[in-house]
Design a binder for these strands. Structure first.
Length: 391
DNA sequence: CATATACCTCG
DNA sequence: GAGGTATAT
């Protein structure tokens, strides 16, 4: 727990939310290309930025454990005595159960001892409004009110292939992300792969996002605001950061949203029907059907949106619609729609969620988590194997 | 509607 | 050529 250890001024208060591993697997959900902002700095511990704060998450069989690093935790930021005191006072209002120990069986003994000493001061402040908000934030981000167990059961019943794949890939949920971060991240995904996208997102946050703090040598920044992305020099900056032709898409989309629709436009798409939200997004430069579906699914509360990228296109041809492989050379608009409609009929209202399970299972980096491929299944095309070596 | 091509950069 | 989009034909 490198990160934690460096923050001796900040009492390491881990809180927990009941959540079984069948409902959520962090290692799949946080690294399968939905969000590019979570890093597993030490095994099982995921650190990232959410709602303008740095969080570390981990999990045990029955719980998610989380801790946050707030400003007053970060020396050199604005850690004057008064703000630290204010933070303490805030903590005192807590009424919810705080678990003052790190997740069991994970941290080293000396850390536990250190935590305990600090925690004595906190014994009386068990609970809190803030804590409740924090828990609610995570429950919202992971959409924990959606029962994944029931969905897997449903999908498996109508789709034997899903049932088979799902054995090795439990707990993959769709995150409910911030619409701005989601849109601009996915504009960067065209003709690109996860490792490079991650670097680009890191750089745009460092360059245009608000500085949030430092853990060890790692600096954390918020995702840039729409306003920052719409500045007139953004395109040039992003080109310097290696965004290539996507730099223009990012800056022009941000400018279009602010000048034509207003700062709340993306948020408002959440209450529109799927097709309307999707066509609205497609009016932006750099946003086609695939990016629009990603944003609909992962930020705009449209669980039926099925993004069809080349992975899903391969999966569809190989395991579901072999007839599509014959006459169609490429993923045309018509074929794109056909695949989405097919999966919606097969899997139902949360088809996009099921899609992300298959998508994840197809990523090279998770291939070792899976069974040996079924010899009766069609062999993969060479192009796809090549592609996977990149990830 | 369908196919072809350019677009940035990296491995 | 890549987890893609926009444009022209």
């Amino acid at each position: 727990m490198h990160h934690r250890a460096s923050l001796s001024v900040c009492p390491a208060l881990w809180r927990s939310i009941p959540c079984q591993k069948a409902e959520l697997r962090l290692e799949f959900t946080l690294s399968c290309g939905q969000s590019f902002r979570w890093k597993e700095w030490s095994p099982g511990f995921w650190t990232g930025v959410l709602h303008g704060r740095i969080w570390t998450l981990t999990q045990t069989e029955e719980h998610i454990w989380y801790t946050m690093y707030t400003k007053e935790c970060c020396p050199g930021e604005d850690a004057d005595a008064s703000s630290a005191t204010a933070a303490l006072k805030k903590r005192q209002k807590c009424t919810k159960k705080i678990v003052p120990c790190p997740p069991p069986k994970i941290l080293k003994t000396e850390h536990v001892k250190e935590e305990k000493e600090i925690v004595e001061d906190f014994d009386q402040f068990v609970g809190g409004n803030d804590c409740k908000k924090d828990e609610e934030l995570l429950r919202d981000y992971f959409q924990l009110d959606v029962s994944l167990k029931e969905l897997y059961l449903l999908w498996g019943k109508s789709d034997p292939n899903f049932a088979k794949v799902a054995q090795d890939f439990p707990g993959i949920r769709v995150l409910r992300q911030d619409p701005t971060e989601c849109l601009f991240s996915f504009i960067c995904t065209s003709n690109n792969h996860i490792s490079r996208i991650t670097g680009m997102i890191d750089r745009v946050c460092s360059s245009l996002g608000k500085h949030l703090g430092q853990l060890d040598s790692e600096i954390y920044c918020a995702f840039p605001t729409l306003q920052a992305l719409a500045e007139s020099d953004t395109e040039a900056k992003l080109r310097d950061l290696g965004f290539g032709y996507r730099a223009k898409f990012v800056s022009e989309s941000a400018q279009t949203i602010l000048s034509k629709y207003g700062p709340d436009w993306l948020e408002r798409l959440r209450i529109l029907p799927y097709e309307e939200a999707k066509s609205a997004l497609c009016t932006l430069p750099g946003v086609g059907a695939k990016v629009a579906d990603c944003v609909c699914l992962m930020a705009l509360d449209k669980p039926e949106a099925v993004p069809v990228d080349t992975h899903v296109w391969q999966i569809a041809k190989r395991d579901y619609l072999p007839q599509l492989g014959q006459g169609n050379k490429s993923l045309t608009d018509r074929v794109y729609r056909e695949i989405g409609d097919y999966f919606r009929r097969l899997w139902g209202s949360h088809a996009g969620w099921a899609q992300s399970v298959l998508f994840c299972s197809d990523l090279k980096k998770f291939q070792n988590s899976a069974d040996k491929p079924d010899p009766s299944r069609k062999p993969r095309k060479r192009t796809q194997i090549k592609k996977e070596t990149l990830e």
